[in-house]
Nucleic acid binder design. Sequence first.
DNA 1: TTTAGATGGCCCGTT
DNA 2: GCCATCTAAA
Length: 704
Amino acid sequence: MFDELFFHIDEKKLLSQLNDAQRQAVLTTEGPVLVIAGAGSGKTRVLTYRIAYLIGVKGVSPYRILAMTFTNKAAEQMKRRIANLLNGEPRGLWMGTFHSICVRILRWHIDLLGYNRNFTIYDRTDQATLLKSLMGRGWSENPRSMASKISRFKNGRYVPENDIEAKLFQRYQEALKDANALDFDDILLKTIELFEKFPDVAKSYSKRFKYIHVDEYQDTNRSQYVILKHLSQVHGNIFVVGDEDQAIYGFRGADINNILDFERDFPNTTVIRLEQNYRSTQTILKAASTLVSHNVLRKGKTLWTENPVGKKIPIIECRDEDDEARRVAEIIVKSGRPYSHFLILYRTNAQSRAIEQALRARNIPYTVVGGMKFYERKEIKDILAYLKLIVNPEDTVSLRRILNVPPRGIGMRTVKFIQDFSEHNGISFFNAILLSIEQKMLRPLTINRLRNFVQTIERFRELASTMDAYQIAKVVVEETDYFEYLNRSAQTESEVESRRENVMELLGSIKSFVEENEDGSLESYLSAVSLKTDIDEWDENAGVVSLMTVHTAKGLEFPVVIIIGVVDSVFPHYRSFTSQEQVEEERRLLHVAITRAKEEVYITFPRYMSIRPMGELEPSPFLDELPEDAIVWLGYGLEEEESSASSASDSRSESSQPFKPGDIVYHQFFGRGEILKIKDGKAIIRFPVGVKTLVLEYANLSKV
DNA sequence: TTTAGATGGCCCGTT
DNA sequence: GCCATCTAAA
């Protein structure tokens, strides 16, 4: 019960493993502390040692310690390290992402806000689905972009353009509440609402958490700041670690001012700077620091290292993505290093494809982290929808997803009727089904089918009350005949197989969740799975090459990092050109990419890319900002290939698309065609097979 | 009225 | 490479 009192730790030994600044950070336990921690300066070490110090030396109960991390994976790793330092697992320590901590709080108190404790969490796709049903016809905008507007609106970063939009936002929020569901923003906002409407709740948590820690503070948003203010109100011992040069989540509302203004927001802050880098070679560190020094919006700091100088960074010009991919594969093969040493980074997920192909061709084993996510696959979403509906009967989005999956003769027409019926009477979708059965409002055949469905769900619900997550998931897969449905609906044998394997994998992962967690209930599983991040899934010990976006790679380190596609308009991304702030964020992103490396960095850029079919590409302007003595340009002559095709003379200075009406172009499926018209990034082209309208950005056209 | 099959459209990054 | 939507068949 009070086993935390018996942790023994050798204080001298603990502190001897830290440098002066790190030690000061560990020992400054009282009051607000801001640790400015450059890349590779040992911030994870500081956080884990500090918590171990609090528990093992100062005798603080783990129950009084809270730590916010950026990913669940980071939380798990830190917990493990702390347990190692303490020679035992501290019980009652709260460590996790802001979202998972807030969900934990809300599971206890959200009924105060009129929600039910078994609420569902809606991701972006769920949001879009819900919005789609609310928008109906007459919207030129797609539900996905509307979802992101709503997110910005909720965080005070967007004002509705007109009354119709404002009305939609309001209806969206009501629909969420009716579905007893929270979106990602709500998880934070409802926590704030809880704290503000019920100050005693906020107070009790604040009393409990005497020591609060926040990792990656530069990427917190306004809501997270407000939550921290509430939680730290009683004791004021708030310890944040961050690096303004690694702020890369502005697009999702992260406010770099949180870290820049910390000293003002929390008076009497102790500021500690960790400037010695333990990770990278001098060359890598110099390249990264010089690059980011071109940013204006920063406080600035000087990192140094005792590590060796190391190799220069090759900047490799490639003809196109396939050429680039080939060279990347060659680098890996020639190095003689184990595959696990390599991290391949790119700006956008779509860039992984060419690389994957080249790696497969050479039998180089790899893993792609993120991108088309496992949990976004149809078969996985189907099964999860059943599970969510079992837990939360009001969850309309899940209900509508599986009402006719596998097909049970309940079609569009019926759904439309029930939808209208529920709206007219202000009742939930599920209740509308029940009522229309009761009042026999549809034809007998349909009534029968609906009744069968309802009985199935109610039976699942009954079973779920005595089963763990794995048992009930297995029942769902079996009793819905889901595999049989896959057999019928899939196009090819291999598709059937891969989908079936995915479902099996899902069941396997639920099983291990149940085995590894004290609370193996369906509710607890669903919470965890909704808040899973890409990197959480990553198995670092698989012994293979890793591929991911720079965003996903945050916090990781690898011996060798290969950054691909470093061309203007991809990295920096063209969508960032609207403001200096955004371009600076792109620069920080490249800085993050480079600083993932311990020993070697390679940078490649292709002259042509299928995702940018508008002619020759320029190397990223960021490359010119790297110090001369840290890099080697490896040019690649283009004169032999393609020289006749693209009038190379000045197509490079032309930033707009080079196609014009009258041009004869080649398309991989339709063959040769003549451009008739160009408008809004689309081209109307006459092919032998007929006239087609193609989006230039995706059509991958080449001039003939 | 529902279902299966074909076609167009598409995304920067993510809790 | 996937999904939504449209169209033809059951």
